[in-house]
């Protein structure tokens, strides 16, 4: 219980990194990681929502009656998701087009609701913010890594720059849905092997 704030942040980057350790939020992780850019964009959007919802849930944890806490969480989360959606439409329209339906679907991302319910509702403000930020950054890194693998193999590019020269035959399977499952599975396996030691 006596974890410091920095520990709350760090745990999101390794011991509880979603979607590898905390196997939640798989739907966006599989769907949008066709490229690094999309993965990181999705991660940052989720981080913003996590950060704000954790902050607000923690602030209001003594006001919200426990019986209707889920309804309140959903209102808070949905509000911030809509904020993100409008902001992305206004400032990063191509990214908004690429992520499409998965932006509004952050509302039902188990990570966000999970952190509100399991952490922010029971903890003071600073640890909650650190927790939200840590999990969010972890999610961003994970999606970025997954996106990097898939983009590199599937289109032979990284952040849109060609990596292998003109002779490279893209492994198109990797940017399709099955490639997402395979690469996520392999990364999970790799993370578990590292963690066992």
């Amino acid at each position: 219980m006596a974890k410091t704030i920095s520990q709350e942040f760090i745990k999101g980057l390794w011991t509880e990194i979603p979607p590898f350790r905390l196997v939640l939020g798989l739907c966006p992780a599989l769907a949008v990681t066709k490229s690094v850019e999309n993965g990181i964009g999705m991660g940052l959007a989720t981080t913003f929502v996590l950060l704000c919802s954790n902050l607000l849930v923690s602030l209001l944890r003594n006001i919200i009656p426990p019986k209707i806490r889920i309804a309140c969480f959903i209102i808070i989360i949905a509000t911030f998701v809509t904020v993100v959606e409008l902001m992305m439409q206004a400032y990063t329209y191509p990214l908004y087009q690429a992520l499409g339906i998965f932006i509004p679907l952050i509302v039902v991302n188990c990570i966000v609701l999970g952190r509100a319910e399991a952490f922010a509702f029971k903890n003071p403000i600073f640890p909650s913010v650190a927790d939200g930020l840590g999990i969010g950054v972890g999610f961003t890194l994970a999606l970025g890594a997954l996106g990097a693998v898939r983009e590199l193999l599937g289109s032979g590019t990284l952040l849109g720059h060609a990596m292998f020269g003109p002779g490279f035959q893209p492994f198109a399977f990797m940017v399709e849905a099955p490639g997402a499952f395979v690469s996520l599975g392999l990364m999970l396996c790799f993370m578990n092997m590292l963690g066992k030691r």
């Binding site: 919200i64 019986k67 209707i68 309804a71 309140c72 209102i75 808070i76 409008l86 902001m87 206004a90």
Partner: peptide, 26 residues
């Protein structure tokens, strides 16, 4: 419960309306 939910929803609605208004042109 009713008061908390009502206040929360109206604040959220107000915030979203404000953001929608200010980003509409963009």
């Amino acid at each position: 419960m009713v008061v908390v939910l009502t206040v929360l929803s109206s604040l959220s609605g107000g915030l979203l309306a404000a953001i929608k208004n200010s980003t509409e042109d963009r």
